[in-house]
Design a binder for these strands. Sequence first.
RNA 1: GGCCCGUUCGUCUAAUGGCUAGGACACUACCCUCUCACGGUAGGAAUGGGGGUUCGAAUCCCCCACGGGUCACCA
Length: 487
Amino acid sequence: MASPVRVRFAPSPTGFLHIGSLRTVLYNWLFARHHKGTFILRVEDTDRSRFVEGAIENLYRSLVACDLTPDEGVAVDGTTIIDKGEYGPYMQSARREKHLRYAYDLIEKDAAYYCFCTAERLDEVRKQQQLTKQPIMYDRHCRSLSKQEAENRAAVGDEHVIRLKVPTEGVSKMHDMIRGDVEIPWAQVDDQVIIKSDGFPTYHLAATCDDHDMEISHVIRGEEWLSSLPKHLFIFETMGWKAPEYAHLPLLLNADRSKLSKRQGDVAVEDYLAKGYLPEALVNFVALLGWNPTADREIYEKEELATLFDITKVNKSGAVFNTEKLDWLNAHYIKELPVDDYLERLRKGGFLPEGIMAERAARVVRERLAKLSDAPEAIAETVDCAEYPSTMLVWKKSTKEEAIARLTAIREYLFKKNETWFGDAVGMERELLLWIVEMGWGNGDTLWPLRVALSGREKSPGPFELLFVTGKDEGLARLDAALQKMA
RNA sequence: GGCCCGUUCGUCUAAUGGCUAGGACACUACCCUCUCACGGUAGGAAUGGGGGUUCGAAUCCCCCACGGGUCACCA
């Protein structure tokens, strides 16, 4: 009689979807799908000072773009933010009354207390602790206040917070699905503020209460939360609630192994998407950062990952976010796209210049793209004939006279073809190669001048592909220009 | 600094006591070839160090080193 699996992603609306968060989202999503459970989006907006306008819409857009749309919770319908599901509200700030009630329950159960210490006093205490090299913690000054006195002061309007009254000795024993058993001495755990002086709860209270109320079965989150697990478990225990199971994911790192940060490159999913990384590639890549189902494959679809997913097999150590491999994966996905889909994505991303030649060039350069944003330059180089010296037209093992002869003959040959003949690069190649053999020529001395005449470049796509791009008239014009140069 | 977590090729990883530690990216060489790209083949490249346990250790235990996380009225 296993209870249904319900997992959540609970970001604070402070900006964009971080690439590390994408992996957290993905693992939650995979876990939910694997267990036929529900994936929930809850927005943790209890710190009003950090709220960023448009952040939720932005975040949600990234989730949708990666096809990781939550089943339940906060959603964006057009331009309005709505709740989807029976466990709302899913905007944490709207649950404030509940949090407050739970905080008073905790006081009732002698697991929390009022604290009237000023910021100045707290600063002073911290300074002292720093000087004497003591652990930096709240000195529990208000913990000994009588409940009656504290309540009176609070009732009179004395500015206060509510702190958790954690045990002071022994160890907190925890279990993590990835790391196994973990123990943290209570002496290391602070009397954390759970209700701020503005009356809003902090993460520790809000997240645990909401996880309980929303019947979250498994909490899959970043490793940075592991050290505060004792507090969370303490709340579950004193409230008499069944705690969810926990999995703390290893962090994503910069190349220098520090925590992945903005300083060293893009960290926003939207930035990667805007640069023309395909969501499929991004998801595939990020899934394999910290976990791998078989060891001898790199390409996986999301659905397949979901059936294979095993949270207990996730690595314990952080993974460097290495863009080189992402590029390779993305190039692979670009090559696998159906042509129409490929062109459509280029167009949507703003990477496809106007014009029939540009579209033809887009087909030709596809295999050279690591990301869609590479397309405009590649297309331009294929469409435009560069300025070049006449000497470039001569193949290394050939002569100017031979180049002129070949180009003249080719010009004549192409002149007799109709426009549709140029629409089939593969057909052209077959026929021209045969013709070259018939004429007793070599590929190099023929194709090199042809290709240079069409591209004006040492390096370029092949001559047949270039003819496909230019079409008949432009192709002939470029041959004429080449012959002119050598005249 | 206290506490917690971690440590397999440069990077992502596989191998949960038992073949010469496997794959991928990147790199190099070769092949294909009119150039580039694609593709193909091959190659170099790792169990942080030291002690144990065991017939046998990347794998289990201990110590050290190193890295990361955390120590807010932020999440």
